[in-house]
């Protein structure tokens, strides 16, 4: 009697798991579908891409990718994206980590308001300062340069980086640092030998988020670059005014633009899932 009860309980649990699984897979496939569809379309001929009803099965072709490379120099744009994303992330971390360190471990009365003020600079709509920045960039010869874009990305991501690093440092017990200090460690040693190893995971997510945000940023890149420093976001936008039917090519160039960061994201998703809490979890 008891045995059969447990058995049926087990069975109903198994059924539950199955239902949840099927449901979760359906939701995930629906959400992932646009990306899948974009990748599929990139291997279609233009005629197949425009077919009604849309075709799930077709003879794949690589011609779009070949044409993309002829029409626009993909690697030029991709390289700009890489340089600007990594450049701004590295500089940003160099400024943000010390700031977060001192905010987390040497809190003063002003620390919290400073932190919130930093975040509030992100609330400024970029259009509010577009014209002055454009004019300043023109005067300093920074228009359409990678340096200029790197500076902007560093500034717009800095508040989030400081905040994230701050929340990770907050989790480290002060006693650990005090112990290092008693052993005569300097501030630099304290950060480099104790703090960084202990918050590796959190800082890695900070770096990841900054890379993703920079790679995908599209306001400043569209308005401050033309060709020399234009990253992939700008390349895609140049495909937005259609000259006839060219959705297969659009899909191909989109796939190329997203592939690096998408693969990067997939590899590091465990890190992101664990680290991206913004101090929301105690």
């Amino acid at each position: 009697m008891i045995n059969s009860n447990i058995l049926s309980l087990k069975n109903s649990r198994r059924l539950n798991t199955l239902i949840i699984g099927v449901f979760a897979w359906t939701v995930a496939l629906l959400i992932f579908f646009p990306i899948l569809w974009m990748i599929l379309t990139s291997f279609k001929t233009e005629i197949d891409a425009f077919a009604t009803p849309p075709q799930l099965f077709f003879t794949p072709t690589l011609e779009n990718y070949a044409l993309i490379n002829e029409r626009s120099d993909y690697f030029h744009f991709a390289w700009n994206s890489v340089v600007v994303s990594f450049g701004s992330t590295i500089i940003g971390m160099l400024i943000a980590v010390p700031a977060a360190y001192s905010m987390a471990f040497f809190e003063t009365r002003r620390t919290k308001s400073t932190l919130l003020w930093m975040l509030s600079t992100k609330m400024l709509p970029p259009v509010g300062v577009l014209v002055p920045i454009y004019l300043l960039f023109k005067d300093f010869g920074l228009l359409d340069t990678r340096t200029g874009l790197t500076v902007i990305y560093t500034l717009i991501n800095l508040p989030i980086m400081v905040w994230m690093a701050y929340t990770y440092f907050k989790e480290i017990p002060k006693e650990v640092l005090e112990a290092a200090r008693m052993d005569g460690a300097t501030v630099a040693q304290e950060i480099y030998r104790v703090l960084l190893p202990m918050s590796k995971g959190g800082l890695a997510s900070t770096v990841l988020l900054s890379l993703i945000l920079s790679w995908n940023e599209a306001f400043w890149s569209l308005n401050l670059t033309a060709s020399a420093a234009a990253p992939l976001t700008a390349l895609i936008a140049s495909y937005s005014s259609p000259e006839g039917l060219f959705w297969a090519k659009l899909s191909a160039v989109s796939t190329l633009a997203c592939a690096p960061i998408l693969i990067f994201g997939w590899i590091s998703q465990k890190q992101l899932v664990r680290g991206l809490s913004f101090g929301a979890v105690k």
């Binding site: 959400i31 993703i212 959705w247 659009l250």
Partner: peptide, 29 residues
Amino acid sequence: FWGRGIVRVMLISPFFIMPTVNALVWKNL
């Protein structure tokens, strides 16, 4: 449930897609 890792990856993927691509794919495809 079975395949939770893959489901998670699929669910967070749109976050990695740049807004310009996102908009054009939705509009045209």
